[in-house]
Deep mutational scan, measured.
Amino acid sequence: WLKDDEATHCRQCEKEFSISRRKHHCRNCGHIFCNTCSSNELALPSYPKPVRVCDSCHTL
């Protein structure tokens, strides 16, 4: 799980985070992405409801 202060850019699109481009953790891989690159939800065994995942984890 990557800490918020360790990420300054989206792991996928590499756009810089700002007040309007917020950080979101993928609940599967733990990396930090922008909203555009992590707008999917997936049912994971460790969560009772579908949770936010990055595009890469969603296509696995």
Rank of each mutant, 00 (worst) to 15 (best):
W1S: 14
W1C: 13
W1N: 15
W1A: 11
L2C: 05
L2R: 04
L2A: 12
K3N: 09
K3F: 00
K3R: 02
D4R: 07
D4P: 03
D4V: 05
D5Q: 01
D5I: 05
D5C: 08
E6V: 06
E6Y: 07
E6C: 12
E6P: 07
A7G: 10
A7D: 11
T8G: 10
T8M: 12
T8E: 10
T8Y: 05
H9M: 09
H9K: 10
C10H: 02
C10E: 02
C10Q: 02
R11S: 14
Q12D: 11
Q12A: 08
C13V: 00
C13H: 00
E14A: 10
E14D: 10
E14C: 06
E14F: 07
E14K: 03
E14V: 04
E16K: 04
E16I: 11
F17Q: 01
S18Q: 06
S18F: 05
S18M: 07
I19P: 11
I19F: 09
I19G: 13
I19W: 01
S20D: 14
S20F: 12
S20K: 11
S20N: 12
S20A: 13
R21S: 05
R21G: 06
R21V: 11
R21Q: 10
R22L: 10
R22D: 09
R22F: 07
K23C: 08
K23S: 08
K23E: 08
K23Q: 06
H25K: 12
H25P: 10
C26Y: 01
C26Q: 00
R27M: 12
R27A: 14
N28L: 05
N28E: 09
N28T: 05
N28A: 11
N28W: 09
C29P: 01
C29R: 01
C29G: 00
G30N: 00
G30Y: 03
G30W: 07
G30R: 04
H31F: 12
H31D: 09
H31V: 02
I32G: 14
I32S: 12
I32N: 11
F33A: 03
F33I: 08
F33T: 06
F33R: 02
F33H: 03
C34I: 01
C34T: 02
N35Q: 14
N35Y: 13
T36L: 15
T36W: 14
C37M: 03
C37A: 05
C37Y: 02
S38E: 00
S38N: 01
S39D: 14
S39G: 14
S39F: 05
S39A: 14
N40S: 12
N40R: 14
N40M: 11
N40T: 10
L42Q: 15
A43W: 04
A43N: 12
L44Q: 05
L44K: 04
P45Q: 14
P45C: 05
P45M: 10
Y47N: 12
Y47G: 11
Y47E: 10
Y47M: 09
P48I: 04
P48H: 07
P48C: 02
K49F: 05
P50T: 07
P50Q: 07
P50S: 06
P50C: 09
V51I: 06
V51H: 00
V51C: 00
V51R: 03
V51M: 06
C54Y: 01
D55V: 14
S56R: 15
S56A: 15
C57T: 03
C57A: 01
H58T: 07
H58D: 03
H58I: 08
H58C: 04
T59D: 13
T59Y: 08
L60G: 15
